[in-house]
Design a protein around this nucleic acid. Structure first.
Length: 465
RNA sequence: GGCGCGAUAGCAAAUCGGUUAUGCCCCGGAUUGCAAAUCCGGUUAGCCCAGUUCGACUCUGGGUCGCGCCUCCA
């Protein structure tokens, strides 16, 4: 039985899908005006893990992760670069897909782009206006009247009074209430034609929050199971999504005004104990990280912490993760990669499953993997090795050929395989002649070049340190 | 200021009201020509102060410190 920590209720709840055996899940994806950073990597990997676990649990999952391809920052960047919005966003969408593939992230079932769902957004705005929740401001924007929506603040645990008392809320012009947010932004002079759509309220473009309400209901229906994203989206983005989506279906009998059953938020990636973010400038792009570290190591590093905990990014920690993952692959050395089924009756698998069912406790699931590796090493048991590989596969790990992982890593500028083999041959000759001074010298030189030799009954093998 | 989250050994990170978490590091042993890998064993825990309890790292209350949201943010 799967339990999920639901941000809405602030506790772990048994997961019961709306439709038996089916899960409909929506995750807020990226705004594509730049390369993805390590924080984005965490969202991708965490929800990929959730997606995989739901599927492994036998659910028929529909996973939607949107792409925000219209927004202030995109427009600004396109103008700076003197290129079209579409060219800019397409370039970063391609880059994002490259990063994802490297991290072993499965493609979502749908990847809707905001610009393709403007009619659906307009329909929701019209419905909100009809329901008395949206109004047209003097400047031409259409705003959401937050005070008219009962239950505003239920996701973030904020009351309107608290929010209003907050010092940091600007009193914006043209809003009936400072907390009201924009549904439709009127077109301004100087904005490219590419960012203008016709609407009953005049030419303009959508506000940020409305796109997710539109795309989720179009692809998953008005009421679906899981909605996810980074913890920073809890407020105001997800709070506003609820106001929009539930406000638009106030009188809809079918979904009884309920938008999402389970809200899942992942914790931040930190640098020096501070949130990694664009505005702080303390971020590393995924490509920067992957220049230094193997992508699977980075994925392993992300999943080694619980998804809701903060994750401190540092080279030292990723190095630590690399050594740990090397241990698992070492146990798989004599087990060729093959698609094998998990034997869920086996005890490590049971522990793994119990951990994953407990709010996706990947650190505990991994502990089971390490215990399993110990058994494999102890017993030389190929069946257990296959089990280790299969369980790793559930997390999107351990699918490579072990030799390839151990030898192929970070070889930039390293010795070629042929050179290494030649050295090994020379060393073995020296060993035969009992010239240990020479054989040790060769091994020492190789070690200095980052090559570790391992003698065994089967011969000498090597790996990169 | 309002709301929320966290504090576990040298580092990272889980579980749990009483029984070895796990990984990295370190020490000892086995193995090895010597190593590496592996195996066996070991050292290092639970921010502070009270309370509940036969017993608390785990529950409750109060501190302290750190972080996040309240503004674009994954």
């Amino acid at each position: 039985m799967l339990k999920i920590y639901n941000t809405l209720s602030r506790d772990k709840q048994e997961f019961i899908p709306i439709e038996p055996n089916k899960v409909r899940m929506y995750v807020c994806g990226m705004t594509v005006y730049d390369y993805c950073h390590a924080g984005h990597a965490r969202v991708m990997v965490v929800f990929d893990m959730v997606y995989r676990w739901l599927k492994a649990s036998g659910y028929d999952v529909t996973y939607v992760r949107n792409i925000t391809d219209i927004d202030d920052k995109i427009i600004k960047r396109a103008l700076e670069n003197n290129e079209s919005i579409h060219v800019l966003t397409q370039r970063f969408i391609d880059a994002m897909h490259e990063d994802e593939r490297a991290l072993g992230v499965l493609p979502p079932d749908h990847e809707p782009r905001a610009t393709e769902y403007v009619p659906q957004m307009l329909a929701i705005i019209a419905q909100l206006e009809k329901n008395g929740l949206a109004y047209r401001a003097d400047d031409g924007d259409v705003n959401y009247a937050v005070r008219k929506f009962e239950g505003y603040g239920k996701l973030s645990g904020k009351s309107l009074e608290d929010l209003r008392a907050g010092e940091r809320v600007d009193v914006a012009d043209n809003k009936n209430d400072p907390l009201d947010f924009v549904l439709w932004k009127h077109a301004k002079d100087g904005e490219p034609a590419e960012v203008k759509w016709d609407s009953p309220w005049g030419a303009g473009r959508p506000g940020w929050h409305i796109e997710c309400s539109a795309m989720s209901s179009e692809l998953l229906g008005k009421h679906f199971d899981i909605h996810g994203g980074g913890a920073d989206l809890q407020f105001p983005h997800h709070e506003n999504e609820i106001a929009q989506s539930e406000g638009a279906v106030l009188h809809d009998e079918k979904c009884k005004g309920r938008f999402v059953n389970y809200w899942i938020h992942n914790g931040f990636v930190r640098v020096d104990n501070e949130k990694m973010s664009k505005s702080l400038g303390n971020f590393f792009t995924i490509r920067e990280v992957l220049q230094k570290f193997n992508a699977e190591v980075f994925r392993f590093f992300i999943l080694r912490a619980h998804y809701r905990s903060p994750l401190n990014y540092s080279d030292m920690h990723i190095d630590d993760a690399k050594t740990a993952l090397t241990r698992l692959y070492t146990a798989l050395k004599s087990s060729p990669p093959a698609t094998v089924q998990v034997d869920w009756q086996e005890q490590h698998a049971q522990r793994f499953k119990a951990a994953m069912d407990d709010d996706f406790n990947t650190p505990e699931a991994m502990a089971a993997l390490f215990d399993l590796a110990n058994e494999v090493n102890k017993k030389f048991d190929m069946k257990l090795a296959r089990q280790l590989r299969a369980l790793g596969g559930v997390l999107g790990l351990l699918q490579r050929d072990a030799q390839e992982f151990l030898q192929g890593d970070m070889s930039a500028g390293g010795m070629s395989e042929a050179e290494i083999q030649a050295q090994i041959t020379a060393r073995n000759a020296a060993k035969q002649a009992k010239n240990y001074a020479e054989s040790d010298r060769i091994r020492k030189d190789l070690l200095a070049a980052g090559i570790v030799l391992e003698d065994s009954a089967a011969g000498t093998s090597w790996r990169r340190a």
